[in-house]
Every structure is written in C-alpha cells, then in structure tokens.
C-alpha cells in the first residue's frame, strides 16, 4: 500500500473540503477543551483531597497504670500492621499540656482538678488507601482487641467524607470523559461519512482498478485522525489560555487560584486522545466496505 499516496490524498481532501473540516476541528476542539477543563479542575481537587487522609487519625486510649513495657508491647504490635504509616505515643502529661495550650486563656477550668483525668493514648495515621469508613472501622475494632487498650476513637464521618469525595471525583471524571468522547466520535463519524459519500464515485473507480479495502480506508482514517489531532492541539491552546487567564488575571482578585496546577500530561494526552477518537469515528463511518 502506498502510504505517501494515502497521506497526500487525505491532505488534499482536508484542503478541498476545508469548511466542513474546519467546522469539525473546532467542534472537536471545544469538546476536548471541556474534557481538559474538567480534568484540570478534578486534578486540582484530587491534589487537595490527597492531602486530606494525612490529617485523618485513629486514637487508641490506653488503660491506666500500664507499665512502660506493656505500653511498648502495644506500640510494637501496632507497628507490625501494614495499614499504618506512623504512630505517636501521647502520655497523660503530654495530653494535659496540649489541652492547656488549646484552652489558652480559659485553661483555669483545669485548675480545680486534683489529678490528671486524661488517659495516655497512641495517635495512629493510616496509609491513604485505608482511609475509608469501612477500613477505619475494621482497623479500630481490631486495635480495640489488643490487651491494654481501653477505647478507640476515629472520625467515622471524616473518613466517609474523604472516601466519598474521591469516589465522586472519579465517577464524575469517567461520566464526563465518556459523554464528551462519544460526542467527538460522532463528529468525526459524521464528517468522514459525508467525505466518503462525496468521494463515492472516485472510490468506485479505485475499487475497479484493484484497490484493497485498506487502500480505500487509509486516507479517511488519516483524515479522521488529523481532525482529532488538530482538535486536540486547538483544545490545548484553549486550555492554556484559560489557565494563564485564571492564574495571572483572576488570581489578583482570588489569590488562592495561584496554587492551581496545570497537568502537563495533557499536552500529550489531548492530541493522542483526539487521534484515537478520530480513528474510532472514521472506522465506524467506513463500516464494512464492499469490494
């Protein structure tokens, strides 16, 4: 098969049918821009939400009057668990000091106490993947069974919220990506179908001269992927303009926007996605060719 002919033929068709192609490229670009902006916002929400599990902890309260050896045994048992990133022992004295600091001016309310009512505790931080409501509950229940542990506390609602937030972000991304991708495939499908019908006579001649299905299909596949590629490139330009507009202009009003990160992977992913969706649209448009 003559690839140079296929490329030349596709290029000529892109130029000859420039208006329909330009229209398709802009439609694909707008669709891919929506994907990019969604990805951009979700990416930044993901970065923020990735830090949330670091703030989540389980607190295991120890029974009173445990010896130093018994406390160390509990700490060693916890360290052996794979779900834990780190843990911190807080003695009764550290706890009351922390409370006094937290109360600041109102710390006088502690003055009437004859003895320290707080327990020693161990603050446990979990790995990101285990910060879910069910994992935290299960780990807490298992820790509670360790001898010397009086009670365990964990922020069930926080764990649940973090998990739900991440799950929702993933689901929204998938829904948006699938919906817009279907749109892009439909645009390239329609364009290639129209171009195919416009060249039907030419295709019939090529068939009679002995062209294979591959030879007939190739220029259309190239044209479909070119529409996707140029749509992707225009989408990137739009996304970059948007990014610089919000980081340089809007951040003067809302300083927080300065912290937004632009995922550089998009510079490659968008044209590649455009090409793939363009090819899919073209393949569906050409369907089963009869020789």
């Amino acid at each position: 098969m003559s690839l140079s002919y296929s490329f030349k033929s596709a290029f000529q068709s892109l130029c000859r049918e420039k208006w329909i192609n330009i229209l398709s490229i802009f439609t694909v670009a707008s669709s891919l821009l929506i994907i990019t902006l969604t990805a951009f916002f979700l990416y930044n929400i993901e970065i923020i939400s990735n830090h949330l599990p670091e703030r989540f902890s389980i607190v295991a309260y120890l029974k009173d009057n445990l010896s130093q050896e018994e406390t160390q045994t509990i700490i060693d048992a916890l360290k052996k668990r794979g779900e834990i990133v780190n843990l911190k022992y807080i003695s009764k004295e550290d706890a009351i000091n922390e409370l006094q600091q937290a109360l600041k001016d109102t710390s006088y309310i502690l003055e009437g106490l004859s003895e320290n009512p707080l327990s020693s505790s161990i603050e446990i931080r979990l790995k990101k993947d285990f910060v879910t409501s069910s994992s935290a509950r299960q780990i807490s229940e298992e820790i509670k069974k360790i001898s010397g542990i009086d009670d365990v506390y964990y922020g069930e609602k926080i764990a649940e919220a973090i998990y739900l937030l991440k799950k929702s972000i993933q689901n929204i991304s998938i829904i948006i990506f699938l919906t817009i991708s279907t749109g892009v495939v439909f645009v390239t499908y329609s364009t290639v179908k129209i171009l195919f019908y416009r060249r039907k006579e030419e295709i019939e001649i090529i068939k009679l001269l002995g062209a294979t299905k591959g030879f007939i299909r190739m220029p259309f596949l190239i044209e479909g992927s070119a529409i996707g590629f140029f749509g992707g490139v225009l989408g990137i330009i739009g996304a970059l303009l948007f990014y610089f507009a919000i980081t340089y202009r809007l951040s003067m009003v809302i300083p927080m926007l300065k912290t937004l990160v632009f995922p550089l992977e998009i510079l490659v992913l968008l044209p590649v996605t455009g090409i793939l969706l363009g090819i899919i649209g073209s393949v569906i448009a050409l369907g089963r060719l009869r020789l």
Partner: peptide, 27 residues
Amino acid sequence: VVFQDFKLINNLTVFGNVALALRIRGV
C-alpha cells in the same frame, strides 16, 4: 478495463489518473 464513460478522476491530472493504477499496486 476501458470504460465507455471513462471513469476518470477529475481532480487528478492525466498523470495522476494513470499513476493511480500503479499506486494501488504499491509501485
């Protein structure tokens, strides 16, 4: 095949039309 209605591709030159039979064959 020599067709009565020629079946030439109008946006190709004479050279392009004749060459098409060879390009299809990968020459």
